[in-house]
Amino acid sequence: MTVESNSVAGPVAVHGGKPECLTEIFRDEVNLAVWRREPRTECLDFARHFASEVSSFERFVAQEKDEPVDEVLPRWALELPGARAWLADVRELIAMYRCLFEPAAVGVRVHVLADTMCPRFHTDRVPARLLVTYSGRGTEWLAESDVLRPESPGPLPEQPLAEHRIQVMPTGSVAILKGEAWIGNEGRGLVHRSPAPGDTPRLVLGLDWLS
């Protein structure tokens, strides 16, 4: 497990090769935990196939405990090769998210994006969001030493920095982003954005903590 820190006092990111590294998000100084993993090949093949078929797609489901997740996909997509492997991966991630945070319900959002959804660097007003990019370029983020934060509460100013300072969550990796609504994390949420459109549409899974 590695910790990305800097000389500026502030949040840090943790990366690891085992799922246990995601528990590091409970440390006060951590606002990003990334489990670097390689999902099953058929899972990634399904994601690329589905993303290329639909080009643009969004679905949100508020999932109670033990409810099936099949409805996050169109019915026709359930017959695509690898669909069951992908859904099994989503179920495992939801179970992991529930184990970590014990939410009353989990908001499950699936996006297929041919364009950029959130092109500006920003923070999220959520406690903790889980993100996985299954197809295309992963979410971009900034280390705290590269972040320009406002002096008073308000939106982030434009972040003037060189491209080589922008970091990328690897495709397939599981990331938990600590947001502004995490108690004690106000003004310290992870700064991130959607990447510029590429040749491959992005398929992104997001899990949110619902009251």
Rank of each mutant, 00 (worst) to 15 (best):
T2Q: 12
S5G: 14
S7F: 08
V12C: 14
A13D: 08
V14P: 10
H15S: 12
G16A: 12
G17L: 13
K18A: 15
K18G: 09
P19K: 04
P19I: 12
L22F: 01
T23L: 12
T23I: 06
T23W: 01
R27G: 09
E29K: 13
N31S: 08
N31F: 03
L32K: 02
A33C: 02
A33R: 00
V34Y: 00
W35I: 07
W35H: 05
R36G: 05
E38S: 15
P39N: 09
R40T: 12
E42A: 15
D45S: 11
F46Y: 13
A47L: 07
R48W: 01
H49W: 05
A51R: 00
S52E: 12
S52T: 03
S52N: 08
E53V: 10
V54S: 05
S55R: 07
S55Q: 13
S56F: 04
F57Q: 09
R59L: 09
V61H: 06
V61G: 01
E64R: 10
E67F: 02
P68W: 06
D70R: 11
V72N: 06
L73V: 05
L73W: 02
P74V: 14
P74R: 14
R75D: 09
L78I: 06
P81R: 07
A88Y: 00
R91L: 04
R91Q: 10
R91S: 14
E92P: 06
M96V: 11
Y97R: 04
C99E: 14
F101I: 04
F101W: 09
E102I: 11
P103I: 10
A104T: 07
G107A: 02
V108F: 04
H111E: 01
A114G: 14
D115S: 12
T116H: 09
M117S: 09
M117L: 15
M117I: 14
C118D: 10
P119F: 08
P119W: 07
R120N: 11
H122Y: 04
H122S: 06
V126M: 11
L130N: 01
L130C: 02
L131M: 10
L131H: 06
Y134T: 05
Y134V: 11
S135A: 13
G136A: 05
T139Q: 07
W141R: 01
W141V: 00
L142R: 00
E144D: 12
D146S: 15
D146L: 11
V147I: 08
R149H: 12
E151M: 13
E151W: 08
P155F: 01
L156M: 07
L156Y: 02
L161D: 02
A162C: 09
A162N: 10
R165V: 03
I166G: 05
I166R: 01
I166S: 04
Q167T: 03
M169P: 03
T171A: 08
G172R: 00
S173D: 05
S173G: 07
A175Q: 11
A175Y: 03
I176E: 02
L177A: 02
L177K: 01
K178P: 07
K178I: 03
E180P: 03
E180H: 10
A181F: 07
W182R: 02
I183Y: 07
I183V: 15
I183H: 15
G184N: 13
N185G: 04
E186M: 09
G189V: 00
L190Q: 03
H192Y: 02
H192W: 00
P195S: 07
A196N: 08
G198A: 15
D199I: 12
D199Q: 15
T200F: 04
P201H: 05
L205T: 10
G206I: 11
W209M: 04
L210C: 00
S211V: 12
S211N: 13
